[in-house]
């Protein structure tokens, strides 16, 4: 145990804490709180009832006041720890409140009404997860639809991206032809053209080909990612050309070379691109916001933003749906974070 502590508190140089060690750990612990804290806070909040959300100052965990059925009363009554005039404390159920006085009964002996000043009573609280925050939006609102739309866009766009980008990368890495450098240049140049610059004309193209208010209108403009072509091409350049020669001698057609040789061998890079693409498409916001104007077509991101922009924000639903929207990304973060970080560190691409 002591060696474990020594190991965990190991620091620069000798035995004493250097001031940089203190800065380091303050920064790291602070970072842990600042980076994870907000999302954790949001997740805890998402399990609170509207009443719990309105509470100030808020509690971390979702508490509700315990209720009890008392004989002679129709509705369940809230339970309180009441301080009585004689100084003792009893658990009582509140019948009604009149001004600053609360009329209470003992749940076990409901005959006698006890009057307590409201300052002298504390609610008896229990932890309760308001899971209806999650189930209601799916049942009553269109969130299931939005979830489905998001999944459809993400999966379809990622599949097309993988195929289209890998085909282009194959052509650009394994064939000699006129205009290869020009094609490469065009692809790199598109890195310079972000969506916000071509927003208006892209919209007009999408509408003139009839893809306005269609999920395909969201998908198609995003699939030819220059980043993807770039990552895959760099990887394919490491595949020896002799393999392709061998396959040609083996009577493989160029398509078979692509599908049977190149694609399986590029699997690691394809996996990285797939992860990137899933995160990109899942998180896309501005473009779907423009293309999709019918409620039943919204993706999660658009739906969330529209609902949260309404005058009367139903935070308990919004928070729960925000958590749902985070889930895939958090899963990617937990299981595949290493792929992404090495991918970014090497290429500087996001």
């Amino acid at each position: 145990m002591s060696t474990a502590i020594a190991f965990l508190t190991r620091r620069k140089g000798g035995k004493f804490w250097h001031w940089t060690d203190i800065v380091t750990w303050v920064w790291l612990i602070g970072g842990l709180i600042v980076m994870f804290g907000p999302a954790v806070w949001l997740t805890f909040s998402s399990f609170k009832t509207p009443a719990g959300l309105a509470e100030f100052p808020p509690s971390l965990l979702p508490y509700v006041t315990q209720q009890v059925r008392v004989e002679g009363y129709e509705k369940p009554l809230p339970l309180f720890n009441a301080k009585l005039a004689d100084g003792s404390t009893r658990v009582l159920a509140e019948v009604r409140r009149i001004g600053i006085v609360s009329q209470m009964v003992d749940p076990k002996a409901p005959g006698e009404i006890i009057k307590v000043r409201i300052g002298d009573r504390e609610p008896v609280r229990e932890i309760s997860f308001a899971t209806e925050n999650y189930t209601q939006p799916f049942m009553q609102f269109d969130f299931f639809r939005y979830l489905w739309n998001s999944v459809f866009v993400t999966v379809t766009a990622t599949l097309i991206t993988l195929i289209v980008n890998s085909m282009a990368a194959f052509a650009l890495s394994k064939y000699e032809f006129k205009g290869r450098n020009a094609a490469m240049l065009v692809i790199l140049a598109t890195l310079m053209v972000p969506l916000s610059v071509i927003l208006v004309p892209l919209y007009s193209i999408i509408s003139s080909v009839g893809l306005f208010n269609s999920l395909w209108g969201v998908i198609l403009p995003t699939v030819a990612t220059p980043t993807g072509v770039f990552i895959l091409r760099q990887y394919m350049l490491t595949i020896p050309d002799e393999l392709i020669d061998a396959a040609r001698m083996d009577k493989a057609s160029e398509w078979q070379i692509y599908w049977r040789i190149i694609v399986p061998l590029t699997a690691p890079a394809l996996a990285v691109l797939a992860i990137f693409s899933v995160v990109w498409r899942w998180n896309d916001f501005l473009w779907p916001l423009i293309v999709l104007s019918r409620r039943e077509l919204y993706t999660l991101q658009v739906g969330l933003s529209i609902y949260s922009g309404e005058l009367n924000v139903q935070w308990h639903y919004i928070l729960a749906m925000t958590v749902v929207t985070m889930i895939p990304v958090v899963l990617v973060f937990i299981f595949l974070q290493r792929f992404i970080t090495t991918g970014i560190a090497g290429s500087g691409l996001k």
Binding site: E242, A246, A247
Partner: peptide, 10 residues
Amino acid sequence: AMVFQSYALY
């Protein structure tokens, strides 16, 4: 049929 220097096995 050809045998390559690097063998070029898949």
